[in-house]
């Protein structure tokens, strides 16, 4: 194995926890059972690395095979890096009829027409998603396998999720996607996050939603020892109403795990008109950037609303996250919120 292959393999081994590495090797069909069992994952990484190098050299495997392994590893551990969502627009009549083999063939041939040196690998994941690994090169340099772009696309949907794509490569990817899927346009979905599954679930509405209903859920029986049952009832009515509204806006049960939401506000100053007349009458927007961050943003928002820190009904700006499946907004005076694409 050459130096570059060693480097690539070393990086993969170093970045992956031993157990995940074991699972990855288990999923790779090329290894024989004996080979798989010969690797001792309790040793230090350096030793594991040497064992793997030996196996690779024995079989004459090269960079191509390492990228295969890397891809399996990424598919199993998708929650790293920053994923950006795109949405394809204007489907042609045949957009829903594209099947896997056809897409694979077309995407590869279109992309290699656009970029001289490019290495594309496409694999189908267990959840029917197509995983695409692209190593980019240009007219003068071979594909760079150290900085691959990963693209995830569910056939028959307009959604595409991308990680590690730079602005120079973006037009080529967009072009190849449009040509091979039967859509005519593509736009930034203004949604990004570390968890691929979360942003996918949010866009495809695959989480437990609650829809507004006229009838509140029946109140549970209350302990009769309270000093004033009327006050108690009224309070619990408020609380359950708040909870209802919180769940309508942000989902019920386990919600997609988003980390951030960003709002670029370019609206007029909306302070208290009585105490701050100068500012509210001022021409021009009050420019600010608001970023919300949490380990689970929707859960935090839901608790804000149910506990009363956020007033109900929930602000349309916040409920737009789930309603529109976005977490980046530019808010201007005409039409809240609008987007910048």
């Amino acid at each position: 194995m050459d130096d570059f292959g060693r480097r690539l393999l070393q990086r993969l081994v170093r970045r992956t926890p031993a157990q995940a590495l074991k699972a990855t090797l288990g999923k790779w069909e090329r290894l024989t059972v004996a080979q798989r069992q010969s690797v001792d994952f309790t040793q230090p990484k350096v030793a594991v690395m040497e064992q793997l190098v030996a196996i690779f050299e024995e079989n004459g495997w090269t960079v191509k095979h390492i990228t295969e392994l890397e891809m399996i590893n990424y598919m199993e551990n998708a929650n790293r890096g920053m994923w950006h969502a795109f949405q394809m627009t204007d489907p042609k009549d045949d957009a829903n009829a594209v099947e896997m083999m056809q897409f694979k063939e077309q995407f590869k041939s279109h992309l290699s027409e656009l970029v001289r040196h490019v290495s594309v690998k496409i694999k189908k994941h267990t959840d029917e998603a197509l995983w695409i690994r692209i190593a980019w090169g240009d007219s003068y340099s071979p594909p760079n396998h150290l900085k691959p772009t990963y693209v995830v696309h569910h056939l028959q949907t307009p959604y595409v999720f991308v990680t590690s794509l730079n602005s120079k490569q973006k037009p080529f990817l967009v072009q190849a996607l449009i040509l091979s899927t039967g859509y005519q346009g593509i736009k930034d979905a203004n949604l990004s996050g570390q968890k691929l599954t979360a942003i996918r679930d949010l866009l495809m509405k695959q989480y437990q939603q609650i829809f507004p209903s006229k009838y509140n859920s029946p109140l549970t029986e209350k302990n009769e020892t309270v000093s004033n049952p009327h006050i108690e009832r009224e309070q619990s009515e408020h609380a359950s109403k708040r909870l209802q509204m919180a769940c309508e806006a942000f989902g019920d049960g386990i919600v997609p795990q988003l980390q951030t939401a960003v709002y670029k506000l370019e609206t007029k100053f909306r302070g208290d008109a009585n105490t701050n007349r100068t500012m509210t009458k001022r021409e021009g927007p009050f420019r600010c950037l608001v970023k919300f961050a949490s380990t689970n943003l929707l859960e935090s928002f839901r608790e804000c609303a149910s506990s009363g820190i956020a007033s109900t009904p929930v602000s349309p700006l916040l409920s737009s996250i789930t309603l529109k499946g976005r977490n980046y907004f530019v808010v201007t005076e005409n039409g809240l919120p609008s987007s910048q694409t």
């Binding site: 608001v290 970023k291 919300f292 935090s300």
Partner: peptide, 10 residues
């Protein structure tokens, strides 16, 4: 709130 919500207002 749980989990804590951090707001950066620039």
């Amino acid at each position: 709130v749980a989990p804590p919500l951090q707001i950066t207002y620039t």
